[in-house]
Simulated scan of single mutants.
Amino acid sequence: MSSENRITARFVVPPELSDRRLDQAVAELMPEHSRSRLQTWIKEGALIVNGQKRKPRDKVMMDDVIELEAEPEVQVSWEAQDIELDLVYEDEHLLVINKPAGLVVHPAAGHAAGTLVNAVLNYAPEVENLPRAGIVHRLDKDTSGIMVVARSLIAHTSLVDQLQTRTMGREYDAVVVGTLTGGATVDAPIGRHPRERKKMAVVSSGKPAVTHYRLVERFAAHTHIRCKLESGRTHQIRVHMAHVKHPLVGDPLYGGRMRLPKGTTESLREVLAGFQRQALHARQLTLEHPETGEILTWEVPLPDDMEHLMEALRQHRRELESHDF
């Protein structure tokens, strides 16, 4: 394989990762690679610290220089499948996709096929030479909306850097339980739930996580909000909004029992009961083009199910307001 197709990266250890194990530090710095792959690169000497080969358990210190030069991991077990993609934008470096709710992003146990990666491999076979087939960030299976996939190594390196430096802008629409009076910021660390391993939670030992939200529309007992992330933790918006007692409508993990507002009509009850996913949609993505440096922004509209949900909530609000007179 030619040298220009090799995976290269260089990081200076930040203060918050000082005194951490090397394998733990690089997992933080390069989340797009699996931990097992990173450990293999460390053991092979493809990943070095201050020019020297280290062991995965060796500690790193602030300002240590970590460098990686390795062969791409070809995922031969992932099959290309002819699955339709809703493409928002494409060029030789990027695929910007509007992902529907219900589509798993990455092959995993129980989802070896029928994923976004299988679809991308069919549409752009060259991504098989990129880490995780060009996937640099994810959306939960039942979260809809916009995401970007790297189509070249230049793009992959650039997008990972933009995610690490938080210069990639992501904005989400959500419908939450309860009426909010305004926007706020949730700054609370997120880690694995201490008892329920499928869930994340706000825990003191978790990774830093910051979510900003602002009010878009208030209903009788629900609120449409818009969220911006400073970090990209697993289930971040879902965990943070549940933490402040305003879980997302329909959230099967963090929503708890469905709460029906006072004066709920039968039609609204049916809509709420029938909304079987978290009411979360990635609406906007802003990034720097990896080749031209141009700042690009894309938006995708709300999917039909969320539009239907909000129209039912508006109708309920109108009915309650009419009864006040």
Rank of each mutant, 00 (worst) to 15 (best):
18 S>Y: 08
23 D>G: 04
301 P>E: 13
212 H>G: 02
261 P>C: 09
172 Y>V: 11
146 I>P: 07
51 G>W: 00
178 G>E: 07
216 V>L: 03
54 R>T: 02
281 H>G: 01
66 I>D: 07
176 V>H: 00
133 A>C: 15
189 P>E: 05
289 H>V: 02
204 S>Q: 12
151 R>T: 06
226 R>G: 03
76 V>L: 14
255 G>H: 01
79 E>Q: 15
242 A>L: 06
136 V>F: 01
3 S>L: 15
39 Q>E: 12
250 G>F: 01
281 H>N: 10
24 Q>K: 12
19 D>Y: 11
58 D>Y: 02
249 V>T: 02
233 R>Y: 00
165 T>P: 00
156 H>L: 15
251 D>T: 07
283 R>W: 11
75 Q>H: 13
261 P>D: 07
63 D>M: 14
63 D>P: 11
229 L>P: 04
21 R>K: 15
284 Q>E: 13
242 A>H: 08
316 H>S: 12
250 G>C: 08
96 V>N: 04
64 D>K: 12
236 Q>S: 10
245 K>L: 05
212 H>P: 02
120 V>M: 14
219 F>C: 02
55 K>R: 14
27 A>W: 04
269 R>Y: 11
292 T>E: 07
20 R>K: 10
33 H>P: 00
315 Q>M: 15
44 E>Q: 12
53 K>T: 08
90 E>Y: 05
286 T>L: 07
300 V>P: 07
159 L>W: 11
121 L>A: 12
119 A>H: 08
30 M>G: 00
104 V>C: 12
324 D>Q: 13
109 A>R: 13
204 S>L: 04
243 H>D: 12
299 E>H: 10
186 V>T: 10
144 S>T: 06
51 G>I: 01
114 G>Q: 11
147 M>C: 10
25 A>G: 12
314 R>S: 04
264 T>P: 10
188 A>G: 09
77 S>A: 13
237 I>G: 07
143 T>S: 14
92 E>L: 06
145 G>R: 01
48 I>H: 00
212 H>T: 04
86 D>W: 01
258 M>Y: 00
114 G>D: 11
299 E>M: 02
214 R>E: 14
72 P>F: 06
99 K>S: 10
117 V>L: 13
305 D>C: 03
248 L>C: 09
108 A>E: 15
53 K>W: 03
169 G>H: 11
3 S>D: 12
221 A>H: 14
321 E>I: 03
294 E>N: 13
91 D>E: 11
186 V>I: 13
180 L>S: 04
198 K>W: 03
84 E>I: 05
301 P>K: 04
278 Q>G: 02
168 M>V: 03
269 R>V: 02
196 E>A: 07
157 T>R: 14
301 P>Y: 01
109 A>W: 09
150 A>R: 04
92 E>D: 15
5 N>S: 12
40 T>C: 13
175 V>I: 08
105 V>A: 03
176 V>W: 09
207 K>I: 01
292 T>W: 05
281 H>Y: 05
114 G>F: 09
144 S>G: 08
271 V>Y: 02
279 A>R: 05
215 L>C: 04
188 A>W: 10
88 V>H: 10
119 A>F: 01
175 V>H: 04
307 E>K: 14
33 H>D: 09
23 D>F: 05
206 G>M: 09
144 S>W: 14
295 I>D: 06
145 G>Q: 01
250 G>D: 05
13 V>E: 11
96 V>Y: 07
265 T>Y: 09
234 T>Q: 08
277 R>N: 06
46 A>Y: 06
113 A>L: 05
81 Q>E: 15
